[in-house]
Design a protein around this nucleic acid. Structure first.
Length: 330
DNA sequence: AACGACGGCAACCGCATGGGA
DNA sequence: ATCCCATGCGGTTGCCGTCGT
């Protein structure tokens, strides 16, 4: 017993829309609106399409204010910053870019922007960064869950290193708790490359309780941060303030814990590797070796991106939320 | 010229969510 | 309080054009 289909799958057309279908849908919606019911819309119009398909076609293509292609550098910056901050929540990102759809931004990120930012790194690091997004089949089975978290972490650190490549101690004031915990561990590891110390830090780092204290819904600080964020565009976002914001914040917190758990698991794996193999060989763990040098991280980026970033601070992941950096204290 | 590889993008799918009955 | 259903969302798929061999 599966879920009931939203439409009669046998009698609906799939695939690309014809100009006639486009015209019918556009004309009808411009004259009468959707009537608040997408499911019945195709029947009213006389086209053999699923209501969801009509909605998607309207929102992603036929809407009058849609922009296609030609993303500006500013839009790139916003997408990058928001992706680092909130991950693949395309609808929220799209809400900050008038005329852009979530689908458009998602495609743009996956096909171009991500490669632009990480492509060079892939070349220089291929086969070296185990347990990361670059090697989803290296055998420990957790990478697919971790892509977003690791990718965001890498991007964020990259941005920080570009701004201040010689001062790693600046990280804690910009990173979120999970990132900070990792970077704190890396710093200690650099100062004293002792896997047991690393293990201690990772195990006894900032606790969930502490993070919860900062991020849980009752925290006015975080609610306000989210409140500011989701209303940047003056309210056109589908998210709202007040009780719903608390709901949203709670979700954020749950996701946050999930990401932390993922990263903990990665670190746990790497830690085990480091003790059993790397320590014996006197080597640093690849994962940390990758992140311990701002100079090394510079190679992640394309020259074009480096040039852009060096000439301005527009790529600072904090730029979008300068007014609302989380005040994290341990 | 033919073919395969690759990239970009439109569209689909299935799950989550929220509101109304 | 519960269920049902429409809508929203993110991940994935597949088509089509372009490029390289």
């Amino acid at each position: 017993m599966g879920r009931a289909p939203c439409c009669d799958k046998e009698n609906v057309k799939k695939g690309p829309w014809s100009p006639e279908e486009d015209a019918k849908l556009k004309d009808y919606i411009e004259k009468y609106g959707t009537g608040g019911n997408w499911i019945t819309l195709p029947q009213k119009i006389g086209i053999k399409r699923c209501g969801k398909s009509c909605r998607l076609r309207w929102l992603n293509y036929l809407r009058p204010d849609i922009k296609h292609g030609g993303f500006s550098e500013e839009e790139d910056n916003i997408i990058c910053s928001l992706y680092i901050s909130i991950g693949s929540r395309w609808s929220i990102i799209a809400a900050q870019l008038p005329g852009r759809t979530d689908n458009d931004i998602k495609n743009y990120w996956n096909t171009r922007l991500k490669k632009k930012l990480l492509g060079r790194r892939k070349e220089s690091q291929s086969g070296r960064l185990t347990g990361s997004i670059e090697d989803p089949k290296d055998g420990n089975g957790i990478e697919t869950l971790s892509n977003s978290a690791i990718e965001r972490l890498q991007l964020h650190m990259q941005l920080q290193s570009l701004q201040n490549p010689n001062n790693m101690s600046m990280w804690p004031c910009k990173l979120n708790p999970v990132q900070e915990r990792i970077m704190h561990s890396i710093q200690l590891f650099n100062e004293s490359p002792n896997p047991l110390l690393m293990q201690h830090v990772l195990t006894n780092g900032p606790s969930n309780n502490h993070i919860q204290q900062v991020y849980s819904p009752p925290s006015n600080m975080f609610v306000n941060q989210m409140d500011n964020f989701i209303n940047v565009d003056g309210g056109s976002s589908s998210y709202v303030t007040g009780p719903d914001c608390v709901k949203q914040t709670s979700m954020e917190f749950q996701q946050y814990l999930a990401i932390q758990a993922e990263i903990d698991q990665i670190l746990s794996n790497k830690r085990a590797n480091s003790i059993s193999v790397d320590q014996a060989q006197g080597n640093e763990v690849d994962f940390f070796k990758d992140m311990d040098s701002g100079k090394d991280m510079m190679t992640w980026w394309s020259n074009e991106f480096e040039a852009n970033s060096a000439s301005s601070n527009s790529w600072d992941s904090s730029s979008v939320f300068d007014h609302q950096q989380l005040d994290i204290k341990y």
